[in-house]
């Protein structure tokens, strides 16, 4: 019998490369692959996916007890938290300016600048700064963050359709990257990328966040939309070819399976084991769908995800 021919696909497209950091700070490049995730037999993946650890500018007292106990004191100090995150293996820090949320402390530009300064001087890895997720507030604090980090090539999110002009202008002025966030929809994602290019951002300065749903809470929709985006990109659609950022830790740890500790059925198993598996499985699904940066919360999941990535890279 004749040998089986390896069934490869001939892709014409390639994911744009985006470099974060640099200019005195460590740098990392994501993207550049010209094949489906980790299928080394049909292409090249020059830069492996990286793991971000989420840091908040405000002590997250409502977090799961497992997160609170593993991070301990540093939760009250974003600088110390970021440092410890790097020790735990973070390739990059994702700083969430949560205190700016109108339902939290509703803080503004000056507090944002301070938090960003603190984290930037505490660590030398690249940084992502995320607003509270409310477009008007995102504008206010991200513009401040952008100025504070001028030249350090951080990534700023959320950049949504509503506020894309403001965020893009900041990115252009200060040399940063926009994280274009759209709700689980191929066309909306492409459209926002087009808008960003129209206002002058180049493809090496855009990441996209196609929206993450946790395992059990919409992961299948996110997985499929990411697969479709990746297929479109490899098929040659430049406006679908931005590297993808996914906020897996945030989504999984807010679900009942990870957050609630009492009154759960015994069939749900050990709380910590379940929570870690919940975050780990969410991460591996996103990796297999093409994620380039995944933000996580628990150090053990970070170790697990990084080990999985290394094994996926070395095959």
């Amino acid at each position: 019998m004749s040998a089986v021919e390896v069934p490869t696909e001939k892709w014409t497209g390639k994911i744009h490369e985006v470099k974060l950091g640099g200019n005195g700070r460590k740098s990392v490049v994501v993207g550049g692959e010209n094949m489906l995730p980790f299928l080394h037999f049909e292409g090249k993946i020059p830069n492996k996916p990286i793991i971000a650890i989420e840091v908040q500018d405000r002590n997250p007292t409502d977090w799961s007890p497992h997160l609170i106990s593993v991070w301990g004191d540093v939760l009250a100090d974003p600088g110390a938290w970021a440092k410890k995150a790097v020790e735990y293996g973070a390739d990059i820090i994702a700083l969430r300016l949560r205190s700016a949320h109108p339902e939290e402390a509703n803080t503004g530009a000056s507090e944002a600048k301070k938090s960003v300064d603190t984290v930037l001087s505490a660590v030398d890895v690249p940084v992502i700064v995320l607003g509270p997720g409310v477009a008007e507030k995102d504008n206010e604090v991200l513009v401040a963050a952008s100025e504070a980090a001028k030249g350090q090539r951080i990534a700023l999110g959320n950049c949504e359709e509503k506020n894309h002009r403001t965020i893009a202008a900041s990115c252009l002025a200060d040399g940063h990257i926009a994280i274009a966030k759209t709700p689980i929809d191929l066309n909306l994602a492409k459209q926002l990328n087009i808008l960003l290019c129209d206002v002058g951002l180049s493809t090496d300065s855009i990441l996209m966040d196609p929206t993450t749903g946790a395992l059990g809470y919409g992961i299948e929709y996110c997985y499929s939309v990411m697969e479709r985006l990746r297929l479109a990109a490899l098929g040659g659609d430049n406006m679908a070819a931005m590297p993808m950022f996914c906020s897996a830790g945030e989504e999984t740890w807010r679900q009942k399976e990870s957050k609630i500790t009492e009154g759960l059925p015994p069939t749900w198993g050990d709380h910590l084991e379940r929570s870690l598996t919940w975050e780990g499985i969410t991460a591996i699904m996103l990796l297999n769908a093409g994620a380039n940066i995944i933000a996580l919360r628990h150090p053990d999941t970070v170790t697990l995800a990084k080990a999985s990535i290394d094994k996926l890279m070395s095959a």
């Binding site: 059990g216 198993g269 050990d270 709380h271 084991e273 379940r274 598996t277 919940w278 499985i281």
Partner: peptide, 8 residues
């Protein structure tokens, strides 16, 4: 182990 079987 239920803690991994349930997520799977």
């Amino acid at each position: 182990t239920p803690g991994v079987v349930y997520p799977l």
